[in-house]
Design a protein around this nucleic acid. Structure first.
Lengths: 246, 246
DNA sequence: CGCAGCCTTGACCATTATCAACGCTGGTGG
DNA sequence: CCACCAGCGTTGATAATGGTCAAGGCTGCG
């Protein structure tokens, strides 16, 4: 189920978990700061390949992940196969925070990547001793909750075009935070994955992508990257101009 | 904006915040346990009437609420008035956890009720000194996130009937946790509010309610309460039978 | 008892899903 | 290095779910 697994516990150099160089909060990073060897002894640094399953909905929730490279898809299924992708994770993101004793979602790698993996029991023990970490996680959970609310607005009330535009705006912002200029946007996921994230079909995603292309709002560079030619028009289509009207 | 406001700080009796008797976690309760007078000095115990606005989307996020009585609606708006209700809060629930420096949602009372209100600055200060509280909040945020994911599946992939059935199943579970038998379900919200929660219109909610009534799955008692006559059939309609198929 | 607002029902319409066919693309093996 | 091909993406035609518009009924409050 999990690919190459390299335990990153070490005798005690500064780089016990050197591979974990996430941009945002990295547990490994925090650990290095704090010099807590105990959790390192329980943390694996794993590598995964495209399509690999990190977490399966319904399985006992034994682990927690911190993505360190690559992108991951998190989704839920209905019994007849209908799928809803609830999020895409990038390096620095956590996987498994919102779980009881069983995972409520599946997680699969979009492409090759890596992650820090902790056992939940160890994580809990550490939390008790590191209020600072808990604070950071609460903060992060709050952000995720806000993002989930935005997505609920999108899924419940936006048109197909508004959904696609909102999605692209989100990707653009993510790209900018990751160091890009916000025009060049990578699309690591397939049309089917975009559709399952936006509550649409591949056909509808495709049609609206074409419409944006025709109007000159975006330009497709390859199948998995595009450039935003008219950002303001895209924002307007996303319905984000005056969303906070109240 | 806020109705009758009674500061509940007191000289120091055991009942400084006696009105706060929420069923689940109550900050006031924890505070009493811990004997922390400091936050009490910063906490109001407010009462609100039906329709009263507790929080307005876009306003500076200065306060945090813990509902102690009544029900509250949390929603987001698009500039043209389309509304998505992201949650209904009951006594014990928190309002304002998922916020940056501005509220990302509005909150309005469904009926009369009350809440504990804290200033965010005080809340942050206390958190630093009460890791136990932070732990409880993280736990709660995780649950909310899970609920948000379920709602995303509902909004993105379920049919109108499945949405309504899922909603009623959820209400039934909530009623049971609140001490009921799970058959008698109170509906404190209007059809329009149900519609805005499920991403539908009032007409569609009404039609499907009628369909459930005709099939004998539910029975309307008053406009704001119903009884579930065939729970298993309702579960099936909700698509919850094998949701965790993976 | 009356009325305003909410709820229900009906007729029709629009957006998006579905079904189908074709084209592109990128990875693989000859 | 090129050609093949499986899978992904696009486009078109048609269908269906749910939305819109409209009218009438109920209900609960004053």
């Amino acid at each position: 189920m999990i690919g190459t697994t390299t335990v990153c516990a070490g005798a005690g150099g500064a780089e016990v978990c050197g591979g974990c160089s996430a941009r945002r909060l990295s547990v490994c990073g925090v650990l290095e700061q704090e010099g807590l060897r105990r959790l390192n002894a329980a943390a694996d640094h794993i590598a995964f390949r495209a399509g690999e399953v990190l977490v399966r909905e319904g399985d006992p929730a034994t682990h927690l992940f911190n993505i360190t490279a690559g992108d991951v898809r998190v989704h839920k299924l209905l019994s007849d196969g209908r799928r809803q992708i609830v999020g895409f994770l990038s390096p620095g993101d956590f996987l498994g925070l919102a779980t009881g004793d069983r995972y409520a979602f599946s997680a699969e790698a979009l492409g090759p990547g890596s992650a820090c993996r902790f056992r939940k029991v160890d994580y809990r023990k550490i939390l008790r001793e590191m209020p600072e970490l808990e604070h950071a996680l609460l903060d992060r959970a709050a952000h995720e909750l806000k993002a989930a609310h935005d997505q609920m607005l999108l899924l419940g009330r936006k048109t197909a075009m508004e959904r696609l535009a909102s999605f692209l705006v989100g990707l653009s912002e993510r790209a900018r935070r990751a160091g890009g200029d916000g025009r060049l946007v990578p699309l690591p996921m397939t049309r089917a994955e975009i559709a399952d994230y936006l509550g649409l079909t591949t056909e509808t995603v495709s049609r609206n992508t074409t419409r944006l292309k025709t109007r000159g709002v975006i330009r497709l560079l390859t199948m998995h990257s595009l450039s935003i030619e008219r950002p303001s028009e895209l924002l307007q289509l996303a319905g984000l101009e005056a969303e906070a009207a109240g």
